[in-house]
Amino acid sequence: MIAPSSPVAIALVGCGSVSRLFYQPALRELRRHGLVNILAVVDPRADARNTLAAALGAAACTTLDEALALRPELVVIATPPAMHRAQAEAALAADCAVLCEKPLAAISVDADAIVTAASRSGRLLAAGHYKRFMPAHRALKTFIERETFGPLLDATLVEGGKFSWPAATDSFFQREQTPGGVLLDIGVHTLDLLRWWLGDPVDFTYADDALDGLEANALLSATFTSDANIRLRLSRDWRTENVYVFRFARATIHSRVNASNQLEITLEGLPMTLAAELREPLPGRPAPPTRALDKNPQAFIAQLVDVCAAIRESRAPFVPGIEGAHALRWVEACYNRRTPLPLH
């Protein structure tokens, strides 16, 4: 990643848990490196707004308009999905670049509208699918594309556990404000990764346990042009192994969820597993160990670095907004094809 030449002026919209737990430490670290200037935080709730503003040394704004008046270059949107469209359109109309948290919007029509608004304004739009920045996921993409261990035969991905996100209100669980459950919440990341690794699915089936509310368990089975069968199980009900297992012709690879710089590789015919930390490459000569690659929080920071660099270099970000729209469209397609899971 290339660092921008001067600090990017940022406004952070939404002072909920994701801002407090992820953006606050990430932005502070980037400011320490002179990469960002945090102008403002925005939230209608005074306590949340003032706490985060104090922590970041930024102006506390009640509305987005107040923050836009401070002329930020980048608006980071970390609010409930139903608010993303209006906020992104307003920021783009004010000539700001936008990094929008996942899902890009509550519904794909809104996501498309955001993408169109970005295109019309000529401003950068990035989707908050930071898991693409994880070294393990980048390595998997390489293994799949180059068939390093032969073709991918199948993959089983299980992710989730008892829900523990410190949701401040119940809006997260009300269909009117958040139109999806575990698939929209954590699954949108996984579907984005699957698309990135394998392209659009050729076919898929989907089942979940929602009654007239939001699903807590979901099962997806998909095929891709590579003929690989992918099975995904998501839960915010019960513990899972939290691992993606990729079975190639000559190796099986376990990638633990959020273990950003680790892979476990079992080579065909070798009765043992290599538990590997991913590091900067070694030269082909005797050399000391190299630096470990990004852990999960560092991968989150890497996305912000990329967006800031993309603004300075007038280039597209690593994960452009259209990718967020694609992932959301797949989520919606799943809901449209939904079959019920037994409740036991």
Binding site: F163, S164, W165, P166, F173, G181, L211, A216, R236
Partner: peptide, 10 residues
């Protein structure tokens, strides 16, 4: 609120 994750199925 976090305890609603499974209850919110309906």
């Amino acid at each position: 609120a976090a305890s609603l994750a499974v209850l919110a199925r309906r």
